[in-house]
Design a protein around this nucleic acid. Structure first.
Length: 538
RNA sequence: CGCGGGGUAGAGCAGUUGGCAGCUCGCCAGGCCCAUAACCUGGAGGUCGUGGGUUCAAGUCCCACCCCCGCAACCA
């Protein structure tokens, strides 16, 4: 595990409100952030909005906003509000129109300039507004942008500033080679490698101010504005004090993990590290003691969604508003579904039916039912209390049963931690649900094999052991899934007669130990964790 | 020679470093009765797109081929 965890989402364009795509990225980041916080690791979770884009200007006009700034303010608020309602625990929200960001960009630009990697050149090329990037003949297909064939290319002939990105191609290739997990999943690293190898050119990083109504001015040249990507990427640094708070910056940079969609990997995995390599040459705060540039440690590119098998599209009316979603389903369930159903890094499909299946099967039948039956039996047979038993004797399961005991539980914790470190919640959750010796499934089997409801008559001592084991296991499972389903986890802890906040204070080491439940403690009346979803079609 | 994703049981999907082909749902037959008609056991169901190759061993690596999906705008 890391000594600190600084995770970011991309900054989102505010030309629209959040939808499942941005929600997916942000929920994934949130679950990771919560996991590290729970583990006592200093965590900073950053998200925000990209407000210097021409697209926003178009959107503001379209929305009939009285001026750009009030439009941006309104949208930024909507994004923040949406995230809060989805239980997103971001620590900071950066807006690229903020002063701190402007100062960071300015400093960054100057560093790159000082390193000799900014030069002026006149050139004529095609600019695609859709991509917000220049296209080389190599990029074009039939003279059109292959991504936006119906959007006319702008012929641009002007004097701009360029970033000498090509000078870093070799260093980037070396980086990918030396650090196999710099870009994940592996297939994306391959893609990036071939891009850098074959098509990595210098970037134009400014436009004439008179043609661009918004954006940050080039330091020392008011007639030019900084290209949106060159500005946007720096947000990851400006939020942690680059150019404004050296101490803060030293504490948090470099980022541990940039979470991005697969469409923007070129910018994050090639341009961004190249920019840092350059700036680091003249800015010691961007270098380690050994002189190496402080690059982000990992970049994870997730896949895209289809909705019910179809591409997300407003004209089809299938864009899902996350706020509508959490009106229909508990947000814990939505979070669980997003993180469990799609293998992180792959494309996936969002289907209401699947969500409901998972809800009924994984959540209600397995998790909810296990907690409910365990608590109910304990209350019934042991006077509304956690059975009194010798905890030492519950370290192992009864002979001839599947239950693997405390050692295996420790192993499961390790597995979960390992998958979290790889950002693979899908795998972590699968292990919790259906691992061999210790899991929700194993716990349910343990009930069948030992039959405490029968055992209570013949061998109450063993029944006490089994039930204590089940309750204690539930406590562990609750903490394992807490980052994904914070409300559900808290409910389980309460049903076990503990206070979630008091428990959390004890720290992860304590929580991971076997025997956290006090034998003989009172058990409150259990409530259904996952009520049936009747007629709740989305 | 555009870019990318994918073809594994009826449906939906996993398969990190090559080592008996798995999961969820559905279906069939049992069990249990603590529990949210939940839980457990057993079973049927697969030429892992096709053809070659490497290997003691390939869904997994290599080569060729076939098929499907996305790529106006919105957009991770």
């Amino acid at each position: 595990m890391h000594t600190k965890f600084f995770v970011t989402t991309p900054i989102y364009y505010v030309n629209d409100k959040p939808h499942v795509g941005s929600t997916y990225t942000t929920v994934a980041a949130d679950a990771l952030a919560r996991a590290y916080r729970l583990r006592g690791i200093p965590t900073l979770f950053l998200t925000g909005t990209d407000e210097n884009s021409q697209k926003n200007l178009e959107a503001a006009d379209k929305a009939g906003a009285k001026d750009l700034q009030s439009y941006l303010d309104g949208m930024a608020l909507i994004w923040q509000k949406t995230w809060r309602e989805l239980g997103i625990t971001f620590d900071d929200f950066i807006r690229t129109t903020e002063e701190r960001h402007h100062r960071a960009v300015e400093k960054f630009w100057k560093s790159v300039e000082q390193s000799g990697d900014i030069y002026k050149a006149t050139y004529e090329r095609e600019y695609c507004v859709g991509c917000e990037s220049f296209k080389t003949p190599f990029d074009l297909q039939d003279g059109k942008c292959p991504l936006h064939p119906n959007r006319p290319l702008e012929k641009v002939s002007e004097e701009n500033y360029f970033f000498r990105a090509s000078a870093y191609a070799q260093d980037l290739l070396k980086l990918y080679h030396d650090k196999q997990d710099f870009v994940q999943p592996q297939s994306r690293q391959n893609e990036i490698r071939s891009y850098v190898k074959n098509a990595f050119e210098d970037f134009s990083i400014s436009r004439e101010a008179k043609k661009l109504a918004c954006g940050i001015s080039v330091p020392g040249d008011e007639s030019q504005r900084i290209y949106v990507w060159f500005d946007a990427l720096v947000n990851y640094m400006s939020a942690v004090g680059y150019g404004t708070d050296n101490k803060l910056f030293a504490k948090w940079w470099p980022a541990t993990l940039h979470l991005v969609g697969k469409d923007i990997i070129k910018f994050h995995c090639a341009l961004w590290p190249a920019m840092i390599m350059s700036a680091a040459k003249s800015d010691p705060s961007l270098r380690y003691a050994n002189g190496e540039p402080k690059l982000p440690e990992h970049i994870f590119a997730h896949g895209f969604f289809t909705i019910e098998g179809q591409k997300i599209s407003k004209s089809l009316g299938n864009a899902v508003d996350p706020l509508d979603l959490v009106k229909k389903y508990p947000f814990d369930a939505v979070r669980y579904y997003l993180l469990r159903e799609i293998s992180f890094g792959e494309d996936g499909d969002f289907a209401a039916q699947r969500l409901e299946d998972r809800y009924a099967s994984d959540l209600a039948n397995n998790l909810g039912n296990l907690v409910n039956r365990s608590v109910s039996m304990s209350r019934k047979y042991f006077d509304n209390r956690i059975p009194t038993t010798n905890i030492q004797e519950t370290l192992r399961g009864l002979p001839e049963t599947v239950w693997g005991g405390a050692d295996n539980l420790e192993g499961l914790w390790q597995t979960v931690d390992q998958y979290i470190e790889a950002s693979r919640w899908d795998m972590a959750l699968e292990a919790i649900w259906s691992g061999e010796a210790v899991s929700l499934s194993a716990a349910n089997k343990y009930v069948e094999q030992t039959q405490p409801f029968r055992m209570i008559k013949e061998n109450p001592e063993n029944a006490a052991k089994v039930l204590y084991t089940l309750l204690e296991a539930c406590r562990h499972f609750a903490w394992m899934v807490e980052p994904v389903m914070p409300n559900v986890a808290a409910d389980i802890i309460r049903q076990l007669g503990q206070d979630p906040e008091t428990e959390r204070q004890k720290g992860i080491k304590e929580l991971k130990k076997w025997g956290g439940l006090q034998p003989g403690a009172e058990l409150p009346e259990p409530k259904i964790l996952f009520p049936r979803l009747e007629n709740k079609k989305i």
